[in-house]
Design a binder for these strands. Structure first.
Lengths: 243, 243
DNA sequence: GCGGGCCGGTAAACACCGTTCACTCGTTGG
DNA sequence: CCAACGAGTGAACGGTGTTTACCGGCCCGC
């Protein structure tokens, strides 16, 4: 038994080393440098050995994506603990800023996880629970859940939900309720209507869009410091959802 | 002379074929399939021959980007001519919808031009005039110029321009004035203030963000038809800039 | 205690890739 | 007519992902 465990631990250990090296290559030299042979070289083994751990390079990359997501999640979690338990708006700000900061600090990872044309077909977070990206989405939802549970409604006075979106939004709302409940927050279903789900969707769209634009530098002119632009957008966003 | 021209034409012809094939490979099999050898194979020549036309694969890709931008530009131009000359808001809607439609129809090209991590460092459109992306930006600005010239102010009542952005925005404003003047639209400088430049920036950020999100499918839940979402955002956007 | 099986790792090979170099050969211009 | 040019070739180098056959130490059951 102990030997079996030992073997398992060895395997898990080198597996960790593999992903660690892959990660280092990604960060330092870009995605093109994440090469089976390069990884193996750094580890002092040969490339085919990696096939004992992953089916293919693409498989390894996918696990790398998951690692990256997990890191983002814990980083956001760390940011969160520094905010007062009762400062719910502050918590929302913290994860938004944390997400942006992480994306700017890790553009390669961001592109890999959030802007790969390959990821286009994948509907990840809530639909396929257990996915790594899911855990990242969960932290957003947990905070949203806390906000809602404290009686702050997330909505906009004159919000009009397009009819065509109501079915999808209803499904989403149910997903949200379940996820929030799982995270230990008590929330009455009436506190999360379709309008709230819609506003949350819009919130994410704008946050994601701003961050993507910044990461890819797609400004129409050179911006010396994009931070004020982000903060201004964030303030708009917060007030738009009624916080 | 005619012979020299003939040679030139031959060269230009095979050059067109090269980019055409590269384009086809990009669309059909993704960016990874855009291979010098594959292109050459399709053309019935050998890979080193391509070096008579481009310095490297990266060089070819860059020209491909330019081609893609040009295509987008003419496509948007075609969409525009179908709108009544006087319907300025309609023209704005047309290019926004056209941009989205193009991006969704050509995700690979969109990723290549607008969401390549490589493009992060490049400040393209206005700063480096003559760039292909510039021509694409120009079509936006021309329409904006026409709207402004017709007395419709692009701004928001309570807009607050962050102080830190004023210098950049002023430069941007001057660029805008110059570009709009070049496009033959008569515009008094007072009709394009820093606030307008800021609002136009925000407009672009939201448009780009929404499109990128759609192209990469980064919705937090499966959306059966994202069009209503886009249209709702577009309506918001139009009313936000005071049209 | 010992033999068989499992499993991480290796070496060699295959088919690609970008890129360089020396070379051909038809066209062009003086 | 002949030299120069320039598009295209073939071979080569070093790199890549992936497959295959093989080795060798460790674990388990007999």
């Amino acid at each position: 038994m102990t030997q079996a465990t030992r073997r398992e631990r060895d395997r898990a250990g080198t597996d960790r080393e593999i992903r660690q090296q892959a990660r280092a290559l990604l960060v330092n030299d870009g995605p093109a440098a994440v090469t089976l042979r390069a990884i193996a070289r750094e580890l002092g083994i040969t490339a085919p050995a990696l096939y004992r751990y992953y089916d293919s390079r693409e498989d390894l990359i996918e696990h790398l994506r998951a690692d990256v997501c997990d890191d983002l999640t814990v980083e956001l979690g760390n940011d969160l603990v520094e905010i007062a338990e009762t400062d719910h708006v502050g918590q929302v700000l913290a994860i938004c800023r944390g997400f942006r900061g992480w994306a700017l600090a890790h553009p390669q990872e961001f592109a890999l996880v959030f802007a790969s044309p390959a990821a286009a077909g994948v509907h990840c977070p809530v639909t396929t629970p257990g996915t790594a990206k899911d855990s990242f989405g969960r932290i957003f939802l947990t905070v949203a859940g806390r906000v809602l549970a404290n009686g702050l409604p997330i909505t906009r006075p004159g919000v009009e939900v397009p009819d065509a979106l109501v079915p999808d939004l209803t499904t989403f709302r149910d997903e949200l309720l379940r996820t929030i409940a799982e995270s230990g927050v008590d929330l009455h279903p009436d506190q999360l209507g379709v309008d709230t789900a819609y506003v949350m969707l819009q919130f994410w769209v704008r946050l994601y869009g701003q961050v993507a634009l910044e990461v890819f530098g797609q400004f129409p002119f050179p911006v010396t410091d994009p931070t004020p632009l982000f903060e201004s957008m964030l303030a708009d966003l917060i007030s738009d959802v009624g916080l």
